[in-house]
Simulated scan of single mutants.
Amino acid sequence: MHFSEYDTRLAGYAVIVNDDDEILLSWFNGGRDRAHAIWTLPGGGIEFFETIEEGTIREIKEETGYDAQLLRPLTTHSFTDSRRNPAFGESTDRPFKGVRVVYEARITGGTLGTLEVDGTTDRAEWLAIDSLADTHHARIIDVGLDALRGSRR
């Protein structure tokens, strides 16, 4: 399929792990479909005039309250859906492709607490990485952690 025949959403996400082996996550409230609420990495859609780095840093701040520095790109991840934009539950007549760039990042300032108003993030928390097996979470967290672990070998 030619790129002009489907919609694309570019997003940037961050894996931020502290010294206590906890990962910073944001609670995606499901947008228009609250049944799809789930823990995810801080990040989201990149605005048209932003670089991926600028947009990722902005999203981290909005969703977690923290200022962050991107250390390095870890991986990219993409997925397709034939009938809707899964990020917001929007139905469309065009196929959809999500393209996500995942960075390793660190906190440089700020205070924990989402700054979004009427957005798709309700809160942010540090969760023990070991607890993720028993926690309802988005696949992008596993993708990011796998890439982080692989880069440290």
Score class of each variant (00 low, 15 high):
89 G>Q: 07
8 T>I: 15
10 L>S: 04
95 P>M: 14
9 R>G: 03
100 R>L: 06
13 Y>P: 01
68 A>E: 06
61 K>F: 11
41 L>V: 01
108 T>E: 10
14 A>V: 06
38 I>A: 05
51 T>C: 03
21 D>Y: 11
125 E>M: 05
104 E>N: 07
18 N>Y: 11
79 F>E: 08
8 T>Y: 08
25 L>T: 08
67 D>N: 14
18 N>W: 09
3 F>G: 02
1 M>K: 08
150 G>W: 03
97 K>P: 02
41 L>S: 02
27 W>N: 07
99 V>E: 15
119 G>T: 03
80 T>Q: 12
3 F>M: 13
152 R>F: 07
35 A>W: 00
43 G>A: 00
87 A>P: 00
106 R>A: 14
91 S>K: 15
56 T>E: 02
21 D>T: 08
35 A>L: 13
43 G>N: 00
103 Y>G: 01
90 E>H: 06
72 R>N: 14
4 S>P: 01
45 G>W: 06
90 E>K: 14
146 D>G: 13
97 K>V: 15
15 V>I: 15
104 E>G: 07
135 T>C: 13
144 G>T: 06
55 G>N: 03
108 T>V: 15
95 P>L: 14
112 L>E: 10
89 G>T: 00
26 S>K: 00
19 D>G: 07
35 A>R: 15
135 T>H: 12
118 D>C: 07
32 R>H: 13
71 L>S: 14
142 D>I: 08
148 L>D: 05
65 G>C: 10
125 E>I: 01
99 V>L: 14
115 L>N: 12
140 I>H: 04
107 I>L: 05
92 T>D: 14
133 A>D: 14
28 F>C: 02
74 L>R: 04
69 Q>M: 12
135 T>A: 01
42 P>I: 01
121 T>F: 02
152 R>S: 11
96 F>M: 10
76 T>P: 00
35 A>M: 07
143 V>Q: 02
83 R>W: 09
17 V>H: 02
3 F>K: 09
48 F>Y: 05
76 T>A: 06
123 R>M: 14
48 F>I: 03
37 A>C: 07
63 E>A: 00
37 A>E: 08
36 H>M: 13
49 F>A: 12
105 A>P: 11
40 T>A: 10
55 G>R: 11
91 S>T: 10
153 R>N: 14
137 H>W: 03
141 I>A: 01
91 S>V: 09
131 S>H: 14
5 E>L: 13
33 D>N: 15
30 G>P: 04
47 E>Q: 05
118 D>N: 13
123 R>H: 06
45 G>V: 09
46 I>K: 00
153 R>D: 15
3 F>Y: 09
48 F>H: 08
89 G>W: 05
55 G>Y: 04
145 L>I: 13
102 V>D: 04
10 L>N: 12
38 I>Q: 13
3 F>P: 15
17 V>Q: 11
2 H>L: 13
152 R>V: 08
15 V>Q: 09
127 L>W: 12
